[in-house]
Design a protein around this nucleic acid. Structure first.
Length: 269
DNA sequence: ACCGCTGTTCTCCG
DNA sequence: TCGGAGAACAGCGG
């Protein structure tokens, strides 16, 4: 579930499910999810805590436990949160389980184990502080983007993937934003003109908002859900005709990750 | 059965 | 400091 829209949907659901509610107990089934933090300390913190708020920074969920502190969770490549009745079986890849009142339980599930469920300690706090601007925040303006871009020498694809610059974009929405802006993924970041920068800003906002809207509309369905079709413009569409100019979509590798783009309307300059 | 992918992020190196 | 390569993990399809 990982990019910003999926995390934001999860945040909204958790807000409804958890805020004002007490965590009766917690179990850690896989301590790797804690990334070296103390299991007993996490459990002591969670047990009896009331969730006061649910926030988000980039792709991190921030759980406010009032005076108990905060939890930061990250879905990695395959994480999700699953609510079940106490007597229902949990998915096999459940890593952390929270037992709630009224016979409910919430599991942090993560098949590939690249995600994290941690107390916000000094280390985590430092990482969160290092995150860049939220692309849906009002402070993310074209001029802010222009400022971030200036002087950067790396390819624009890599720039947009860097969470310390802009926090929340991943491989899919980077490809989608670049397509919407008509920009080739290999363009040097610092070389964008003012109008290209504006187009990119708009492309980022539009692709995120559109995914948010769609996912909100049909209650969380994503690529991995069977029967759900690819709803993106270029992502995963190698060989298909570009929706704008009908040129075949291509795929290129950058930093070990694939990028889908249209060679017809995404100019290299 | 092996290889090469997969929505992320670290660390290490030059 | 900056940017690229490879690592961490597990599973699936060709």
């Amino acid at each position: 579930m990982p990019e910003l829209p999926e995390v934001e949907i999860a945040r909204r659901n958790l807000e409804r499910w958890l805020v004002g509610r007490r965590i009766l107990n917690a179990r850690v089934l896989d301590r790797l999810a804690l990334r070296g933090q103390s299991v007993s300390r996490l459990i002591r913190t969670l047990r009896g805590a009331t969730v006061r708020g649910m926030g988000r920074r980039g792709k991190h969920l921030i759980w406010d436990l009032g005076g108990r502190g905060r939890i930061a969770s990250h879905f990695g490549m395959s994480g999700k949160l699953v609510m079940r009745s106490a007597n229902e079986a949990l998915p096999g890849a459940s890593r952390v389980v929270l037992h709630l009142a009224r016979g409910r339980k919430l599991a942090f599930v993560d098949v590939r184990r690249l995600g994290a469920f941690q107390l916000v300690d000094e280390m985590v706090e430092k990482k969160l502080r290092g995150l860049g601007v939220g692309p849906l925040e009002p402070s993310f303006t074209p001029s802010r983007l222009s400022h971030l871009l200036s002087g950067a020498r790396l390819p624009i694809k890599s720039f947009l993937m860097d969470q310390r610059r802009i926090a929340g974009l991943g491989n899919i929405h980077v490809a989608e934003a670049l397509f919407r802006a008509g920009l080739h993924p290999a363009l040097e970041s610092g070389s964008l003109s003012e109008s290209e920068t504006r187009a990119l800003h708009r492309g980022i906002r539009d692709t995120l908002n559109e995914t948010l809207r769609k996912e909100n509309a049909d209650e969380m369905r994503y690529l991995q859900e069977s029967g759900s079709e690819n709803r993106f413009l270029v992502y995963g569409r190698k060989g298909e005709p570009c929706p704008r100019c009908a040129t075949r979509i291509e795929r290129m590798m950058q930093g070990g990750r694939s990028t889908f783009y249209c060679p017809g309307c995404q100019a290299t300059k």
